[in-house]
Design a protein around this nucleic acid. Structure first.
Lengths: 139, 139
DNA sequence: GTCATTGCAAACGCTTTGCATCTGT
DNA sequence: ACAGATGCAAAGCGTTTGCAATGAC
């Protein structure tokens, strides 16, 4: 495995703004959402710049990215170590969780079928406490 | 929960062809791939029809669908019961696996954070035996 | 001065939709 | 005959890219 050359990154107002915006939430947000909210807050930025900043952060393992069922990419700042997510299907709030059991289960299953270099994606969806309450009040 | 009205489906040459095409493989394939391979095999069909047929099958729980990292939807015929997938990242070959441990882990984690109605997505990726051999021969 | 970054608009690729036509029942 | 299915082309939508201008170091 190559240590990957890690391109030089210059800092800039826009890049910092994206990071800050991402730091301000616990939810997975799309590039479009970020773009819109940054503009609303009087923070001029180009859509392409948002995408490029996010791409860079993904490369640098500063954010997690996953695809929604309708194909949109959503991003979230994350801790650098391996982990999984518990995502509220209503409000998008996210909790990082660890699952040592899952890790071993995944590699066992892979090995049992002759698969090597196992990797896995585990996302748990649910309705968070607040939203469960909200749904009970107004279904 | 509503028993879902389950729309009427008429049979047709094209629809049957899509089903048959899906039945012939163990891999997750995209709508575009299906479209291309069906045409190659002298089976005229419209791209929109492929998409519509696949949508119907997903609604009827006849196929699984998931998104690749680049946002393409890929489909695979599946057994009706709950299960997870072990997918070869090289050739797309797929094995359905069960993971009772994972099920319980997911609901435990959800409950621990006050989340209700847990659901989860677990996909294990790896390189299958054949592809591991192929990679060793030609990296 | 050099080279990464930005913004815009155009290009892309996958997917969906409108609509007239065809077809299964 | 009625309602669903088809094909084509056009539209949608999120994302990427070309390119000239700008800004960091």
């Amino acid at each position: 495995m190559v240590p990957q050359p890690q391109r030089v990154r210059r800092s800039s107002r826009q890049r910092d703004a994206v990071q800050e915006s991402l730091a301000g939430t616990d939810a997975f947000v799309s590039a479009q959402d970020l773009y819109a909210s940054m503009r609303e807050q009087g923070n001029p930025i180009g859509l392409a710049t948002v995408y490029r900043a996010l791409q860079n952060m993904v490369e640098d393992d500063e954010v997690d990215v996953l695809r929604t069922d309708d194909g949109e990419a959503v991003y979230r700042r994350c801790s650098p170590s391996h982990h999984h997510h518990l995502v509220c299907r209503r409000c998008g709030r996210t909790v990082e969780v660890e699952g040592p059991d899952v890790e071993s289960w995944a590699s066992t299953v892979a090995a049992a079928h002759g698969f090597t270099a196992p990797d896995h994606v585990v996302e748990v969806f649910g309705t968070c406490a607040d939203c469960t309450r909200a749904e009970a009040a107004q279904p």
